[in-house]
Amino acid sequence: MTDQAADEPERPLPGGFVNTVVRVGDTVRRPATAASGFVRDLLRHLERCRWTGAPRHLGFDDRGREILTFIEGHVAWEEYQPADVRSDESLVAAARLVREFHDLTAGSGLAGDREVVCHNDLSPKNTVYRDPGTGLRPVAFIDWDLAAPGARVHDVAHLCWQYAGLGPRADVDEAARRVRLIADAYELADRAVLVETILWWQDRCWRGIAAGADAGEPAMMRLRASGAVDGVRAAHRWTAGHRPVLQRVLA
């Protein structure tokens, strides 16, 4: 494609620890990875389905970076956010947005022999919010680099961990209620393994960051230096300690 925005200035987008992402005009430029081909095919599939919950993939620029459409709105990458971001209404909207995405990939060649394609990094930091007049609500997900075939419960578990705020600062009864709210809004059938899958994500996350940092990967080193390993391990201990309460509410 002709890169009509090539002469426009580049503006770094905030919030990224892993990749350097910039805005150029109405586009976003991201470094290509080994998964870029799959991401391109996925985003083009969603575009053909007329789903607006993801950016459009426009090709690659002359530096080999992915070119994506820029989605206007509020990205909740900072620690402290407006109350609307973590409201019940936003939780329900996020769960339903994930369900829409999953249903569009179920049975597709992209999912292969798995249930669906999963985003695998769902969090408010990777969500674009807009206010339709009733408060900020999630309208799209960004940062699809980790998307891959998987099980529905994988994304729902990540959603519960990140959006319900599971960790030492959470009130367990309120957190359990929010986990149940997400599962109900998604209409998740496979709830017996939801808490175990949350724990699997948390364990996998802190170990992955630590291993990458030990191997000298700059992005993982930055994450560990920011306290991410200790934070995720604390969240894992909290979830494990309150597993009976979470499971009881889901049952």
Rank of each mutant, 00 (worst) to 15 (best):
A147Y: 11
G133P: 05
L166A: 08
L146P: 00
H154P: 00
G231E: 10
A5K: 05
W200H: 12
V117W: 15
V39D: 06
R233E: 12
P244N: 12
G53P: 01
E66G: 14
V195K: 04
T52W: 10
A164C: 10
R233P: 01
A95M: 01
G208P: 00
R222E: 11
E100I: 01
E8V: 00
D3M: 05
Y80A: 08
G53I: 00
C49A: 15
D203L: 07
E78D: 09
A215L: 10
T52M: 04
A140Y: 10
I209V: 04
R180D: 14
L104D: 03
D88M: 02
S123D: 11
L122H: 12
M220Y: 13
L43R: 02
V249A: 15
A164Y: 04
H74Q: 05
A175Y: 14
H154L: 13
G16H: 09
F38V: 00
T69G: 10
F38S: 07
V156E: 11
R65W: 14
D184N: 10
L246M: 00
G59S: 04
I67D: 13
V92E: 14
L58P: 04
G37Q: 07
R40Y: 14
V21E: 08
D62K: 07
R29K: 10
P138L: 07
V249R: 14
D131N: 08
M221P: 02
L43W: 05
P124W: 09
D61G: 07
V232H: 13
I142H: 13
M1F: 13
W144K: 01
N120S: 12
G135P: 07
D184T: 10
A94E: 08
A157Y: 14
D62Q: 14
T134G: 08
V172L: 09
R50G: 11
G15R: 01
R86M: 13
R130H: 15
A111L: 09
G231T: 07
D121K: 03
I209E: 01
D113M: 07
E72N: 12
V28S: 12
G37E: 01
R248M: 01
A234D: 10
G107P: 03
E187A: 13
V139K: 08
A34H: 15
Y80C: 01
G64C: 02
L91I: 00
F101N: 00
A35S: 13
L250F: 15
G25F: 12
R48G: 10
G150R: 03
R23N: 14
V172G: 05
V195W: 08
D145W: 04
R44K: 08
T20G: 06
L166C: 04
R237N: 03
L246S: 05
T27Y: 13
E78R: 13
A192K: 09
L188W: 15
